[in-house]
Each structure stands twice: as structure tokens, then as C-alpha cells.
């Protein structure tokens, strides 16, 4: 099937994505559909390629095989100009915020507007202050990134990601470092953006309770594939060994807790037991 032929209700369509990094198969013919206007959470054990998947969606990385269509455009085949055009419609929240350290909070949020529009200064100011108010940091507009806590920096990065009211926002670990008040407000903001503007959201996160409050759908990724997907409140009990292990936090199951290694007793220098 041609991934670029994306029907209207699917914003991101991934077909047969295969990626090998440093000799390890990160994705093994992965198929995934992200519906338009919904909040989809990507979950999975650490190191299974959740952030790498976001990088494929934004064209930062390309797979060895397969197709990724965003809004009907096959990302690996886009020219630089077309890719930048697509990225103007995408907001991205980095794991580590990635604020520009030379600029204060206000200028960080204003940066995309200044680069891509010729809006009058008063309008830029109003848009930026509106977004900062939404994340509770209007009063911090003149602070430098070095003066922010981790949670505050993440909220500034969120304000920057939504400053253009994009069609798609990719959140990479958006809840890390947020106190309960900030977490609640960020969850409300994500939901409001989705309901009022119809923005499609893709969340990569580990906090199931937060995900259950905001997401419409969860996809569980492991062993290079989507191993389970479904309703956030029902997926835990779908009977699959993957979901049982992941949501139950069990060490034993299809996902190995231990990184592949040699014999433990041998590594500790103990003599082997005779058969």
C-alpha cells in the first residue's frame, strides 16, 4: 500500500518502517496510523525507539525501508524546502526543552514567529504573552533559560511548540519534572488545544495515569513493532503478555529487563556447577 495516499482521517501513516542503528534493528516493518484530531500516546520500554520514531516523523532521521506519510506527504522523499514547509505546521516538544540559551523566555517563544512571519511587534507580543499565560509563565517572560527550573523550561518549550497553532504537536516526555499543579495544567492545555483547534497530538511518555487522563489511544511499541494498541483505560487488560508485563511493571515477560549479556556467574568469577 502506498503510505502517501493518506485518507483524511489519518494524519500520519507509517508502513513497513525498518531502521537499523549500530547493527540493532530498532524498527522491524513497523506499521502505524495516527488519526487526525486525536491524542495518541506512544508508550514502551526504554530504548525501544519512541523518540527515534518522532525523529522519523519529522524527517530528522530516515529509515532503511518503509514509508512515512504526514498529511499525505511522504517525508523521506521531500525536498529541503518542502520538509521545512511541513515542519512549520508541526510543533515539537523536546525531552530536554532545547531552549535557545542566548534568548530570554519571551524571545524563545517569539523565535518561530519572527523567523516565518512579518507580523507587527504588537501582535507578536500579544501572541507570545497569550501562550506564556497558557503555560503559567507570563511573569517569567524576561527570565533567561539558565534561570528556569527543568519544569519551567519544559513549559516554555511547550509554549514555543504551540505558538504557531500547528496541525500536529509531537511531545517527547512532556510530563517529566512537572509538579502536580503544572502537570494538571499541561494536561488541560493539551486537551484544550486538541478540542478547540483540532490539533493532532502524539505523546511519548511513561506516566500511565497522566496518559489515561488525556489520550484517546495508546500504542505500545516493543521489539521494533506496535505490539498493542487501544483505549487508554482498556489496554491494560487486553490479555496480551506485552501489556501485562509493561503496565504491571514485571521483570519477566516478552521484554527482557536485562540488556543482553553473558553468563552472570561467569562474569562474577564463580566456578560453573558440574552437570
Amino acid at each position: 500500500m502506498n503510505a502517501a495516499a493518506s485518507p483524511d482521517d489519518t494524519l500520519i501513516r507509517i508502513r513497513g518502517l525498518t531502521t537499523v542503528l549500530n547493527g540493532k534493528k530498532v524498527f522491524d516493518a513497523l506499521d502505524l496510523d495516527i488519526p487526525r484530531g486525536k491524542i495518541t500516546a506512544i508508550m514502551g520500554p526504554s530504548g525501544t525507539g519512541k523518540t527515534t520514531l518522532l525523529k522519523h516523523i519529522t524527517g530528522q532521521m530516515h529509515g532503511d525501508a518503509g514509508q512515512i506519510a504526514v498529511d499525505g506527504k511522504n517525508v523521506p522523499e521531500l525536498s529541503r524546502e518542502a520538509l521545512y514547509g511541513l515542519r512549520e505546521k508541526i510543533g515539537y516538544l523536546f525531552q530536554n526543552s532545547a531552549l535557545l540559551t542566548d534568548f530570554d523566555v519571551f524571545e524563545n517563544v517569539a523565535f518561530p514567529l519572527r523567523q516565518h512571519t512579518r507580523l507587527p511587534e504588537v501582535l507578536i507580543r500579544n501572541i507570545v504573552l497569550t501562550k506564556l499565560q497558557a503555560v503559567g509563565l507570563r511573569g517569567a517572560a524576561r527570565l533567561m533559560p539558565s534561570e528556569l527550573s527543568g519544569g519551567m523550561a519544559r513549559r516554555v518549550a511547550l509554549a514555543r511548540a504551540i505558538v504557531f497553532d500547528p496541525m500536529l504537536i509531537l511531545y517527547d516526555e512532556p510530563f517529566v519534572g512537572l509538579d502536580p499543579i503544572a502537570l494538571n495544567q499541561v494536561l488541560k492545555l493539551i486537551r484544550t488545544l486538541n478540542e478547540t483547534l483540532g490539533i493532532t497530538s502524539v505523546l511519548v511518555a511513561h506516566e500511565l495515569s497522566a496518559i489515561q487522563r488525556v489520550a484517546d489511544r495508546i500504542c505500545l511499541i516493543a521489539n521494533g513493532k506496535i505490539v498493542a494498541e487501544g483505549d487508554p483505560h482498556g489496554i491494560e487488560n487486553d490479555g496480551s503478555p506485552w501489556t501485562r508485563q509493561f503496565f504491571g511493571g514485571e521483570a519477566d515477560g516478552p521484554v527482557p529487563f536485562q540488556y543482553p549479556a553473558g553468563d552472570y556467574a561467569e562474569a562474577l568469577g564463580f566456578p560453573r556447577a558440574k552437570a
Partner: peptide
């Protein structure tokens, strides 16, 4: 340091070359 703190990647994702 801009690369190490993902500032370069952030620019690329904001469609700034």
C-alpha cells in the same frame, strides 16, 4: 553546546536552517 543541548535540532524542527 548548541548541538549537545538540541538547540540546532530545535532550529531544524522550527524550519530554521
Amino acid at each position: 553546546l548548541m548541538r549537545a543541548t538540541d538547540q540546532i535540532a530545535a532550529m531544524e524542527l522550527m524550519a530554521v536552517d
